[in-house]
């Protein structure tokens, strides 16, 4: 009888004991070293992306991870990466991200638009050439080769490379 009673007490007490909580892991997008930081590049993200947690998009649902996060704010991180990649761009360029999602299927998607000022011939009062802002939309996606968050970061880096290349080609012919 006494044994049974102490067992029950033990059971009740053990219910209060907490499990071990996994540590939070932080990630950064890789930056090439020895590159100049270009002040002409300005990056922003949509308000949905203003989150330090890595975001999954499953159909229309956005699921934030809890134990895996970006170390720096995403916009700041992207700004550093792209400014480094586009070191030779001399015109003021503005890049906006609407999507930066991964998924359980392993597909990483980035989309948004970039904008630069372009000389266009516009007939105005002074009849002179004018500078005009032009928007270029972009969307890239890629399946990661293996599962896991490190592979996600690598995949994102590849996509950002593709984007940088495209902009570079456009602006520095």
């Amino acid at each position: 009888m006494r044994l049974l009673f102490s067992l029950i007490i033990m059971c009740l007490l053990s219910a209060c004991a907490s499990q071990k909580i996994p540590d939070i892991k932080y990630y950064v997008l890789p930056i090439e070293s020895n590159t100049l930081f270009n002040e002409n590049i300005e990056v922003s993200v949509s308000s949905a992306l203003q989150d330090n947690r890595i975001l999954f998009k499953e159909l229309h649902q956005v699921i934030p991870s809890h134990y895996h996060r970006w170390k720096a704010p995403l916009a700041h991180n992207l700004q550093r990466v792209l400014a480094a990649k586009l070191g030779s761009v001399t015109t003021k360029t503005y890049i906006h991200f609407d999507a930066f999602y991964t998924s359980q299927r392993g597909e990483m998607i980035i989309s948004g638009y970039w904008r630069t000022e372009k000389k266009v011939n516009v007939v105005n009062i002074n009849d002179t050439a004018n500078m005009m802002a032009v928007n270029y939309p972009f969307e890239y996606s890629l399946y990661q080769k293996e599962q896991g968050y490190n592979a996600l970061v690598d995949t994102a880096a590849i996509l950002l490379d593709q984007l940088a290349e495209k902009i570079q080609k456009h602006l520095v012919p």
Binding site: S65, Y67, Q104, R105, G106, E107, M108, Q144, Q147, A151
Partner: peptide, 16 residues
């Protein structure tokens, strides 16, 4: 209660 473990990117690769 502790959070559920996060989703793993690429865990369902067979669905692609």
């Amino acid at each position: 209660e502790p959070k559920d473990p996060d989703l793993t990117p690429g865990a369902h690769q067979d669905e692609k």
